[in-house]
Design a protein around this nucleic acid. Structure first.
Lengths: 249, 249
DNA sequence: TATCATTGTGTTACTACGACACAATAACCC
DNA sequence: GGGTTATTGTGTCGTAGTAACACAATGATA
């Protein structure tokens, strides 16, 4: 679909005043990264987003948006909140291409946005901008710039949800390569939680979850003692995703 | 607003294809109750719901719906999920009053629904049906009938979310009267979790949270030993709602 | 006044968690 | 090739939290 067609006829294809925003996270260089897009019109950054086709479910729409930005299919995707403040799209007029946006276009509507976050394997992603943007890059979670609308708040809420889930559900299968070391897993947790953890206690806790399998192989090439390689036991991992890692009562 | 006006002109006031469904829960007779409405046209039961005015936020709309059904203001309200499967409104034609619903009405749209749950003090509620329903009653959570659309699934999701939150956040301030006994609080937890708990361990755990205050008064009138009365320390309760009761890492 | 269900208040064993110490090792450098 | 260095593997110990369990106190009832 071309930009013109999208602006003029999008409302025939998509549900009005409803959008989806995705917080796509990856892990690289011991840092948590988030995928951002750069708006054509004014150079500001935003989260990848899109709209819901009239015949699609929200989950389907989110999966499509993700596929279009990353090239990945079958991604771990989690709805976390729906944002519906009428004032959430601050300075919206700046983003509606004063030159090309017809005054009656559906893009001028107030939008309610459903937030999803995705955890992806960094190395597998091919970032791809969309119709409204000309750049698509990974950005370190600690140096995210001012984003358009309420996108900074959306990102924060996604992180908060992820941190919450960390207490009850495993994380890592979708963010790390198939085989990884315990220090790598620890640094993933440390960046998500934004705090440092005790190496020895962390290992004990992770192993106690019973979802890891130690391989008879060590990761060589580093400058120091070679750490063991681990992988997730996929069946137990999936089970933990459904049942949770612990019961409170 | 009258029914005719609502059906014919609602789309001028409300956002199209967007609704809100509320799971309103109360506690009475040692049982968790949920507020249900009975559809005028075919007698089926459903969750209280409503629509979002073009100028309102989702939270505002949910609060208004709640006020209209319960008479209560300043209610504890929590968004938990947005339901957007295009097939979620099964047998919708049954509910659209074949006699009175104009074919082009906005009510025929596919609706995406934002789910909220509310915890209210049972005795304070005056159930009130809406334009589309003629009855509004409390129903025991264990004997909920078949509801319209995907409302049973929405209710289940609300309960699941509430059970999750129970591990990290306090519950009770909004469901119990101002002064209550430890056995009452325990039965609240037991009905929500649908499991029985050890009396002594439950008390220790609750007191350890540090949000309860024991009064120098006992609840008399029961057939047996008079239990102490407690109340929540409102400041500490609010703090626990924000920070959570425990940190996982 | 005896009965009885229910409440208040422990104890004990076990597990989980945080703080901490020391030996092993892979690359590096002289 | 052997010492250096940063990092990894594995443990201990004290504390806090949890689950299972026992007995005395009490308030209405009979």
């Amino acid at each position: 679909m071309e930009l013109n067609e999208f602006v003029e006829k999008g409302h025939e294809v998509y549900l009005r005043h409803l959008s989806i925003d995705c917080v796509i996270m990856g892990f690289h260089d011991d840092q948590l990264k988030v995928l951002l897009l750069k708006w054509k019109e004014n150079g500001q950054w935003c989260l990848p987003g899109g709209f819901v086709r009239k015949e699609d479910s929200l989950d389907t729409a989110a999966a499509r948006i993700l596929r279009e930005r990353t090239g990945l299919q079958d991604i771990y995707l989690q709805q976390f909140h729906t944002f519906g403040d009428p004032a959430r799209e601050r300075h919206k007029e700046q983003f509606l291409w004063p030159r090309s946006m017809p005054p009656g276009s559906w893009m001028h509507d107030r939008f309610i946005s459903v937030g999803y976050y995705a955890l992806v394997e960094f190395s597998q992603v091919t970032p791809q901008p969309d119709l409204l943007t000309d750049e698509c890059h990974w950005c370190d979670i600690h140096t995210v710039p001012d984003l358009i609308y309420d996108h900074n708040a959306i990102l924060e809420k996604a992180l908060e949800t992820l941190r919450m889930r960390l207490n009850d559900y495993p994380v890592g299968l979708n963010l790390l390569p198939a085989r990884f070391t315990m220090p790598e897993l620890q640094r993933l947790y440390e960046t998500i939680l934004d705090m440092s953890l005790d190496r020895r206690n962390f290992q004990k806790k992770m192993l106690a979850f019973g979802i890891l399998e130690r391989l008879n192989e060590r990761k060589t090439g580093g400058a120091h003692k070679a750490p063991y390689l681990y992988r997730f036991d996929r069946r137990k991992y999936e089970k933990a995703l459904k049942q949770g890692l612990k019961f409170g009562f």
